[in-house]
């Protein structure tokens, strides 16, 4: 009997150090940029600035974590895979209800429960549309986006609501051990979701469902179950985001959802460049949100024309993503 020997390649390739460097290149690009910004403005690395970045990016990061779960469970093909673009709309609906109820003197717990119920209902609606009706996630969540935005406008009458509530201001301005409270919420989401998706049996199977539907099926798993769960889990993230968002803008300012959508989607998919396997992950998505925000803040500190920030940001992000893609191609 001859035992075949296959060279143990890939990881034991010629220059492991170089490989590691290549694999981490996207992060390196960001690191270099931040060094550049720190050199240009001392304030950039001050804790006051960093905590402000964390505070600002918390809602995006939390929503991105939710989206990452759906993408993981449904696959990263935009056209047929898992995606939930209704998350920002759901969160906005939550913000609207929470603000409205608080302004009308409802106790916080009750108001939050109401808002949470509405947000989770959107998650359930998505799950039903995708799993029971059989729509592709993009179409299903696009439809619920339109419906939820419309409903929010209607319920809230399309007006700005300013909330003056002790708890909300605490969330906005408070810190725990010097860490802003919104960032603490984000951290909690990071820990819970990462563990859920990347360390448990359930998460492993959820990843498999998105990675190859038929592989999951013949392994005795039901991909639809995981996809449905992922929409509900994502809506739980949106519940947390509701609170943080309400704090960030002290109530509801209409029309925030489009901006949120773009930032969330960008963060999630840019985050894939940070993972070794170049797939969407929870930590990657959240890191993406923070880094993209930090980039914007840095450029402002460097006094880059506000209109040009978008351009520079876009170009840099393309560089990061391209480097990841090219590195993946090199491995073939």
């Amino acid at each position: 009997m001859t035992a075949t020997t296959v060279e143990t390649r890939r990881f034991a390739a010629a220059a492991p150090a170089l490989r590691l460097l290549l694999a981490r290149f996207p992060l390196l690009v960001f690191a270099l940029l931040f060094v550049y910004m720190a050199l240009g403005s001392e304030f950039f690395l001050e804790w006051r600035n960093i905590s402000s970045i964390l505070r600002q990016s918390a809602p995006d990061a939390i929503l991105a974590a939710g989206l990452a779960v759906v993408v993981t469970a449904g696959g990263d093909d935009i056209v047929s895979g898992g995606i939930d673009i209704s998350l920002p709309a759901a969160a906005t609906l939550g913000v609207g209800i929470l603000s409205d109820q608080l302004v009308n003197g409802r106790p916080f717990v009750l108001a939050m429960l109401l808002a949470a119920a509405a947000v989770v209902a959107v998650g359930l609606l998505n799950a039903v549309l995708v799993v029971k009706v059989g729509l592709t996630p993009l179409l299903a969540t696009l439809a619920s986006w339109v419906a939820v935005i419309g409903t929010t406008k209607w319920v809230i009458n399309n007006r700005r609501i300013t909330v003056d509530h002790q708890f909300i201001s605490n969330v906005r301005d408070g810190t725990v051990l010097n860490v802003p409270i919104p960032a603490v919420f984000a951290l909690a989401v990071l820990i819970v979701f990462s563990f859920w998706i990347h360390r448990t049996r359930f998460g492993h199977r959820l990843q498999a469902s998105g990675g190859n539907r038929s592989a999951a099926e013949i392994s005795g798993l039901n991909p639809d179950y995981f996809l449905a769960r992922s929409f509900v889990m994502a809506s739980l993230a949106a519940v947390v985001a509701t609170l943080v968002l309400t704090a960030r803008s002290s109530g509801l300012s209409p029309g925030i959802e489009e901006r949120l959508l773009l930032d969330m989607v960008l963060a999630t998919f840019v985050g894939a460049a940070f993972s070794f396997r170049r797939v969407v992950t929870v930590p990657g998505a959240m890191l993406g949100a923070v880094l993209v925000k930090a980039l914007g803040s840095g450029f402002q500190l460097l006094n880059v024309d506000i209109f040009k920030v978008g351009m520079v940001k876009g170009v840099l992000i393309l560089i990061v993503v391209a480097s990841a893609a090219l590195e993946a191609g090199q491995r073939r």
């Binding site: 609606l125 549309l129 439809a143 619920s144 986006w145 339109v146 419906a147 939820v148 935005i149 419309g150 409903t151 406008k153 209607w154």
Partner: peptide
């Protein structure tokens, strides 16, 4: 606006 979305869904 609300009806448009709900009708679509």
């Amino acid at each position: 606006d609300a009806l448009e979305g709900i009708i679509l869904v």
